[in-house]
Write a protein that binds this DNA or RNA. Sequence first.
RNA 1: GGAGUCUUAGCUCAAUUGGUUAGAGCGCCGCCCUGUCACGGCGGAGGUUGCGGGUUCGAGCCCCGUAGACUCCGCCA
Length: 593
Amino acid sequence: MYRTHHCNELRKSDIGRTAMLAGWVHVRRDHGGVIFIDLRDREGLTQVVFRPEENADLATQAHHLRHEDVIEVEGKVSARVPGTENAKLPTGDIELVPNQLRILNRADVLPFPLDAEGTNEDLRLSYRYFDLRRPQMTRNLRLRHKVTKATRDFLDEKGFLEIETPILSKSTPEGARDFLVPSRLIKGKFYALPQAPQQYKQLLMVGGIEKYFQIAKCFRDEDLRADRQPEFTQIDIEASFVVPDDIFLLTEGLLAAVFRASRNVEIPTPFPRLTYAQAMDEFGSDKPDRRFGMHLTDLADTFRSSSFKMFRGALDAGGAVKAINAKNFASLTIGQSDELTAMAKQYGAKGLAFIKVESGEWKSPIVKFFSEAETEALRSKLHVEEGDLILFAADKWEVVCEVLGRIRCRIAEMQQLTVGSDQLDFLWVTDFPLMAFSAEENKWNAVHHPFTRPKDEDIAKLEAQEFREVRAQAYDVVLNGVELGGGSIRIHEPDLQAKIFAALGVSEEDQQAMFGHMLRAFRLGAPPHGGIALGLDRIVMLICGEESIREVMAFPKNNRGIDLMSHSPSDVDQRQLRDLGIKLTGEQPPSAN
RNA sequence: GGAGUCUUAGCUCAAUUGGUUAGAGCGCCGCCCUGUCACGGCGGAGGUUGCGGGUUCGAGCCCCGUAGACUCCGCCA
């Protein structure tokens, strides 16, 4: 036995009893005579006091304790000397006076201090096992556990079965780049790690499971970001005989349970809903952050017959003119305005027109082109006041929305509009387009995935090949401008599925080779079904108030997909390659480390 | 593939216009210290300023290249 209590357990009421504690030496305060040790385990701190007059041997040993040594102490729980209680610690009324000390393991000099913020992330990742001792990390992993537990409890309660699906699965052409696993038994063939258990969960519905969920690891071989890792976790859900409202209700209940369990907050349900078209039109984003205003204001009516060519021209060409009002941002710096202009160009605008409202004056090179009526319309539509910055975009509708949407978010960052906010703004974005045209590949691609069901009323448009007009029964759930997850009602009829594949340019031969099992399954009585997948890492990130999902994963990879601790990916033995029938081309240097 | 920011002691950072021996706090080592809780005091060790090249009488600082980290774009059904 190493301990009878943890380090956040002993209280006044325990005074006089004998206790054993084990943990790490958090801090040593050595007064030459009396020595204080703050002993830490994952639950908290307990002060341990060594007094030379009571036990000289122990005091001598304690004198040599260092940061992060692992020790076990046994002794008497005592009241602290009156006046020396520490109100900051839950255990601050007591201290342990040991009659035994066992040093279980010594620690080297630390690679970085555990109590400091701001250590280089690559150093932290190199010593992740050490970094995890920081209370912040322990807290994050605990919250993650609470989220997964609440998820399991909630979905179990609703009758969902947790079912595992294969990690060694099949490569599909659509979507993200696959991680491939070579087959040894069938040389020259490859498994793929699942980008999502999409097909399996649909086949479980065909299998009559009706209600499935999984805390599923997913793998995508794409470039990394603060909120994107090559392997990540989804709360994957699928149900039979459902319509979107069933999924909305379920997801809202699930997220409410998760936020209740982890943050002890009640989130209001149902969530507001916006169509994709509304979201783009008003916020210039399919995952709008509505915690701040700056709505995109349509100015087509104002400038339809304007003499200002830039705006009039865009409207005559069937495009749009919109503006946002950045309140109290007329004082932006030259650098900030340059950045915003560069951003506008990056997203396809020719430029960015703006008006600063300062000293009662509209300062802008374009104001002189406006008629009095136009100026008045701007003033009332955009609620223009002293100190405002009005930014305009005039172009194709998509470009105008995208540009102003991006600028809107960047300005919110510059003005720190959401800093310190504990607002939780959930919403649904619905009615996504089913397909998007890729100029690069000169073909139509599925926006969500190829199994997504079109809206019933749009199926005629699908058959008429008006792909741009076809909306999907697909939906995303968004929190504070972050896409938490998305899903759809699926296609369960082989004929409709074949039509979609055809529209996506998948030949019948390829359909059979790649999706034959799905099409066959749909012929054996597939029930109507649909579901959703939620990004667990992102949910936990938001719950923890972190800005990177790496902070809520125990062992994440860095920006280039390298595990700095274990040094993967790594070279492998020639024999392993031979077993797999793989020969390296030698195009890459032998070691990337 | 592209853009930006960064890289100085174990950690976090400083170093005026290019100017003497590159400093501080924390940590580490030694000594002192019996009620601290970020204990305190005295002393000490610790640096190829990421790496390579250039300009200069002289480079942590300027220029070129390169490596790495992070953020973003592309990409992510």
